[in-house]
Computed example of a mutant assay.
Amino acid sequence: MDLLDDLLSGVRARGATFCRSVAEPPWAVHFASPTPLALGTMLSGNAWITPAGGEPVEAREGDIVLVRGNGSFTVGDSPDTPAQVVIEDADRCWLTADGPDTAGHNFVLGPRTYGLTADGSDLFVTAEYAMRGDVCERLLRALPELVVIPGAPEFAPLLDLLATEIAREDPGQQVILDRLLDMLLVRVLRSWFARPDAEPPAGYRALADPQIGQALRLLHDDPARPWTVAGLAAEIGMSRAVFARRFSELVGQPPLTYLTEWRMAVAADLLREPGSSVTSVARKVGYSDGFAFSNAFKRVRGQSPSTVLRATAATMAGAGAGAGSTAGAQLAP
Rank of each mutant, 00 (worst) to 15 (best):
G120F: 08
D197P: 08
D160S: 15
L39K: 06
D221A: 15
V147H: 01
A118Y: 03
S121H: 03
F291Q: 15
P196D: 06
R299T: 14
E55D: 13
R272K: 13
A142V: 07
R240F: 00
S325I: 03
Y129H: 14
P82T: 09
A224P: 05
L4I: 11
P34W: 10
P196T: 06
P196I: 01
A28W: 00
V308M: 04
A244R: 12
S288I: 07
A208Y: 07
I176E: 08
P26E: 06
Y204W: 15
L184S: 03
L270W: 09
T81H: 10
A13C: 09
A327D: 11
G275W: 01
L116C: 01
N70M: 12
V125L: 13
S72C: 12
A267Y: 04
R240L: 02
L66I: 00
Q84T: 04
L66Q: 04
M1T: 10
A234P: 02
L270Q: 14
G62R: 13
D122E: 06
L8T: 05
E88T: 14
K284F: 01
A292C: 06
N70R: 13
G133H: 02
E154P: 00
K284R: 15
L207R: 12
T117L: 11
G213E: 06
E88W: 13
G110W: 02
P200Y: 05
A233E: 04
G320I: 07
I166R: 09
L219D: 00
L4E: 02
T102Q: 12
A292H: 14
D89H: 14
N46H: 09
D178K: 13
A32Q: 14
